[in-house]
Amino acid sequence: MKKQFFLIMTILISSLMHSQDSLSHKNEKAKIFGVSPSKKTKNVNGVLLKYYDEIDNEITPKKVNGLGLGFNGLGIFFPVLLLVNIGSINSWEINNADFEDLPKKMNTINGMQLAIINMEPTVTNGFELSLSSNISAPSVINGVSVSPLYNFHHTTNGVTISTFANVSKKCRGLQVALINVCKDSKGLQIGFWNENGKRKLPLINWNFKSKKEKL
């Protein structure tokens, strides 16, 4: 009995020491300042300066605890192009059949994301502010997303606020904009025109039942 007790204690102590070594190793790798795209940057406890990572190019997923800053210059032109084509808003939707497997390949920002435009596959847990959020990339916002122009996400859990349009495939929460479009919506939409999987209405729209079919 004593031998078994000492054996268990030895295993537990060894496991704890290994865990501490692993944590120390991870902390050593974390940077205060990182850049994206970069295969060397993985964990950042501070600021990530990002330009354009693509899943198709096998990006190295990055975890940021702090601030993500995006300076993609294309963001200056996209809002104008989208404003001209606002009549075809249904074609703006991001549609990824295999989206369930994508988040683990995406960058994760725990904190705040500030960008002219975000064209990187990103999961943001916190607050997001940009001129045109997440265009041409699957993305998730768990928190609040604000844009003076447009908000584009695959999945939104929380609140999205913009002037012209909020477009998502899956929504859980509140959308506020001139035009709100979400095929799988569970929550409220407030705007001049609102569309969800159940109905299309001006001013206010709602749905509190989850969509049963798989996206």
Rank of each mutant, 00 (worst) to 15 (best):
M1S: 03
Q4I: 15
M9Q: 05
T10Y: 11
T10Q: 11
L16F: 13
H18Q: 14
L23I: 12
E28F: 14
K29E: 15
K31W: 00
K31G: 07
S38T: 06
K39Y: 12
K39M: 08
K40I: 04
T41N: 12
N43W: 02
N43K: 10
V44C: 15
G46V: 15
Y52H: 12
Y52P: 04
I55N: 11
T60E: 13
P61F: 00
K63R: 04
V64E: 10
G70P: 08
F71E: 02
N72L: 13
G73A: 10
G73R: 12
L74P: 07
F78S: 07
P79I: 02
L82R: 10
L83D: 10
N85L: 08
N85H: 03
N85T: 08
G87W: 12
G87I: 10
S91T: 11
N95F: 11
N95P: 03
D98V: 07
D98F: 11
D101E: 14
P103D: 09
M106C: 07
M106R: 08
N107P: 09
T108K: 13
I109Y: 13
N110F: 00
I116G: 08
I117M: 07
N118R: 06
E120G: 04
E120I: 04
T122F: 06
G126W: 09
E128V: 00
L129N: 05
V140G: 11
P148E: 12
T155L: 04
I161F: 13
T163E: 05
Q175H: 05
A177R: 01
L178P: 02
S185D: 00
L188Q: 10
I190W: 08
W193P: 00
N196P: 03
K200H: 07
L201R: 05
K209Y: 00
